[in-house]
């Protein structure tokens, strides 16, 4: 599904002649939409996803990157997420798409 969506994106861009941007450029373009902040924090009932759109590399992973942390239902203060050992992963096209949709709804 992700690959198909990516193909559609590329295909439409090719049709319109618009330049195809890589993930780094797409993510950087979202920073102004996020009030100039580099990070977007998204939460669901079971986890938290922190997306750094721009900024320093972490754990050898350049931005954009994500960190997904599970809910800790036993913590006395809710919501609480176990962020200590959550890995930093490169952001995917779907991650950037999710952030874009979220920011578009906020603005």
């Amino acid at each position: 599904m992700g690959e198909y969506s990516d193909f559609c994106c590329w295909s439409n861009a090719a049709k319109t002649g618009a330049p195809v941007k890589n993930l780094t450029e797409q993510a950087a373009d979202l920073v102004p939409l996020n009030g100039g902040r580099n990070r977007v924090t998204l939460r669901s009932p079971s986890q938290q996803m922190e997306v750094d759109l721009a900024g320093k590399s972490h754990g050898g992973v350049p931005t954009p990157h994500t960190k997904v942390s599970p809910l800790n239902p036993r913590a006395p203060n809710q919501p609480a997420f176990n962020t200590k050992n959550s890995p930093v992963e490169p952001a995917t096209q779907q991650d950037i798409r999710t952030v874009r949709r979220y920011l578009e709804r906020q603005n």
Binding site: G36, R37, N38, R39, D52, A54, G55, K56, H58, T63
Partner: peptide, 8 residues
């Protein structure tokens, strides 16, 4: 003013 200590 926001100081992004993690990224900047």
């Amino acid at each position: 003013r926001i100081y992004d200590l993690h990224n900047c």
